[in-house]
């Protein structure tokens, strides 16, 4: 069978309204970024909190955080997404359930589920990085903080965390990149992010190699640019002479 190569396909009409296929990719990329950034925000805040909990001298807090990490790391992302999308709404109180199922548009409810899912999933990973970062600091730092009269929360906010975050930027970067890649699972609950738009283009236009090549290219460029941004941040916040560990 012959395959009709047609790289101009992206500028052809989709037959729906005045849209060309490229518009679909732009919309898809928009969703991908919207999912990833909000998910990352949740992951960073919750993950840092959990990471701190794992290192404080309190059994209960540490156990809670450890349990969280074990659960969210050992269940496949897709299963988690289905749980958030199909199961959790049924468990909500009546008014909330109605709001989720009836008031929200299909896209909005899918978006909400995937953002929560990715945020909580990635938080478990961020937690482990934060914990590693804190534990990599010399023990004397904690004591020095105490010796100056700081309370434990003050020691964390003024001494430990500012250092820990600097040294875990490389592993955090890779988690940040992962959330962009993982956001593609949203296509499986019907959210038209980048991968879903690619699939749709491939099916509508029959130019599947072109569609997937473009998608690959977009992910590749996205990945590279995010990496450069993170490197820039790493340099900006670098403190001369501060140890650097991790990196993997």
């Amino acid at each position: 069978m012959n395959y009709n190569w047609n790289w101009g396909v992206f500028f052809q009409s989709t037959g729906i309204g005045s849209e060309i296929y490229l518009d679909w990719f732009v919309t898809g990329l928009g969703w991908t970024i919207a999912i990833s950034l909000v998910g990352w925000l949740i992951a960073l805040v919750l993950g840092s909190l959990l990471g701190v909990m794992r290192t404080v001298p309190n059994r209960l807090l540490a156990t809670i955080a450890t349990t969280y990490v074990e659960i969210f790391r050992n269940v496949p992302l897709l299963v988690q997404l289905f749980l958030w999308y199909f199961l959790v709404p049924d468990l909500l109180p009546e008014p909330l359930e109605m709001w989720f199922k009836q008031d929200l548009s299909p896209a909005a409810s899918a978006y909400l589920s995937v953002v929560v899912c990715l945020g909580l999933f990635t938080a478990a990973r961020v937690c482990e990085q934060v914990r590693t970062g804190i534990q990599a600091l010399p023990k004397g730092q904690l004591n020095a903080g105490y010796a100056l009269g700081f309370t434990l929360p003050q020691v964390y906010t003024t001494v430990l965390l500012p250092q820990a975050f600097r040294i875990i930027i490389p592993p955090l970067t890779s988690e940040f990149l992962n959330i962009f890649k993982n956001s593609s699972v949203a296509s499986l609950i019907g959210l038209m992010e980048l991968l879903a738009q690619t699939k749709q283009t491939a099916e509508f236009s029959a130019n599947l190699f072109e569609a997937f090549t473009l998608a690959t290219l977009i992910y590749f460029v996205l990945n590279m640019s995010l990496m450069m941004i993170m490197r820039w941040i790493e340099k900006r916040v670098a403190v001369p002479g501060l140890i650097s560990v991790g990196g993997k």
């Binding site: 990149l177 890649k181 593609s184 599947l208 997937f212 590749f220 990945n223």
Partner: peptide, 13 residues
């Protein structure tokens, strides 16, 4: 730099 899901989908086609 690309999602596994993309690879699975692409290869399927």
């Amino acid at each position: 730099s690309i999602p596994l899901l993309l690879v699975i989908t692409w290869f399927y086609f």
